[in-house]
């Protein structure tokens, strides 16, 4: 049974054939759309490497059936920067050494973008750590990640009225 779904991926509306309903959002992004930023760490919801935003909310794309998301807006790490201008969360990860090998990083960054939108953690590092606990980092860059999230959150709240592309999607 083959059918099409429509997704707006990083701002572009696309009609995407689904040859087999078994495909997850993660496999669709990586294999069909060649957006390999979202990583397949565990494929079972246990690591967060596949985190993307769906309709503005961070989820694990490995445990989402693509067919079920017909009509949704997807934001991946590839859609975050504006040309050469990095998103404040990306900048903060560089400033604070929020990664080492980089494998978990697209998931960490998308998760951080989602966390900042959720606006539940405030400036409490413990709440930030708790809210980022769905993203594992085997290199143990956690200290830098927490600092990066806090700083990016501050930067984003300062230029709040001007919506950036990544924020508006």
């Amino acid at each position: 049974m083959s059918f099409d779904i429509v997704l707006t991926v990083n701002g572009t509306r696309r009609t995407i054939p689904i040859p087999d309903p078994r495909v997850t959002l993660l496999d669709l992004l990586r294999e069909s759309l060649h957006l390999t930023g979202a990583k397949k760490g565990c494929d079972r919801g246990q690591c967060g490497a596949c985190t993307v935003l769906v309709d503005g909310r961070r989820i694990n794309s490995c445990l989402a059936l693509a067919a079920s998301l017909d009509g949704a807006e997807i934001l991946t790490i590839e859609g975050l920067a504006e040309g050469d201008r990095l998103h404040p969360v990306q900048e903060a990860f560089i400033t604070h050494d929020g990664f080492q090998c980089g494998f978990c990083t697209p998931g960490q960054i998308m998760s951080a973008v989602g966390l900042i939108r959720e606006a539940q953690a405030g400036d409490d590092p413990e709440r930030v750590r708790e809210a980022m606990s769905g993203n594992l980092c085997r290199c143990g860059a956690y200290a830098g990640i927490t600092e990066a999230v806090l700083e990016a959150q501050k930067a984003l709240s300062q230029n709040a009225p001007t919506t950036r592309q990544g924020e508006a999607a």
Binding site: R57, R58, I59, G114, L115, N135
Partner: peptide, 9 residues
């Protein structure tokens, strides 16, 4: 329970 991503879904 779970993680923020899982709870969102």
């Amino acid at each position: 329970g779970a993680s923020a991503q899982l709870r969102n879904a």
